[in-house]
Amino acid sequence: MDENESPAVRLDGVHKRYGEVVALDGLSLSVDRGELFGFLGANGAGKTTTIKLLTGQRTPDAGSVSVLGRDPSDDPVETRRHLGVLPEREDPPSFVTPREYFAFVGRVRDIDEETLDARIDGWTHRFGFRDQLDTLCTDLSRGQRQKVMITASFLHEPDLVFIDEPLANLDPVMQERLKAFLVDYTSEDNTVFLSTHHVDVAEGICSRVGILRDGRLADDRRPDDEDGRLLDAFFDGVRSE
């Protein structure tokens, strides 16, 4: 299959263990290009491990992984060139300013200066943090640091973005702006893989939702499916544990 025709994300029978702990137990999943895919799961369900496998940070013990038509573990650096990644628990470096951090990301991702400036301008406008561009990141609030990390993960306007709990620490206005942006972003045939445990967020903006349970895909549905509410599907699994 041509790289451009392949699904944005595909996992087939993927297993991953950390010592005695089984993180993924035969996970199979496919996400098409242009989807805003919500990846739901309880704490410890394996969401972060899945993202690490998809972004070439880890290799699976068994099974196959494909991202934009390539196996990320074959060439993780090249794979990540085409991806945006927003980890759940990551702050920008403490002793550089947001402006400097964006310049750093721009250089690593080969974004020309003019384009970079325009995109930084757009994001500082969207998130209203222009005044903090020259403040050391260590002195920013948690919410401001989250805005910096979100901006950094979208600076190169990637075809596929993995974002883990992007709304954390953002105020309600910023949450709404980000949600609107994500919907808009996927309308241009980009793919967003949104990992969250906020069912309402997934229900509100995602075009499709997968529920991860015990390292497997327990449910895969569109939020407007008529066979019950997403929240019920999510809690059914939790209750059965």
């Binding site: 300013t97 402006r99 400097e100 310049a103 750093f104 250089r107 020259d134 050391l136």
Partner: peptide
């Protein structure tokens, strides 16, 4: 501590070293 601001020094340093990671 009050929030500390500083002018951009990254670009010039990165340019001089030819390595953004080392500059950072």
């Amino acid at each position: 501590r009050r929030a500390r601001t500083t002018r951009d020094r990254f670009d010039a340093l990165s340019e001089r070293l030819g390595d953004p990671l080392a500059a950072r």
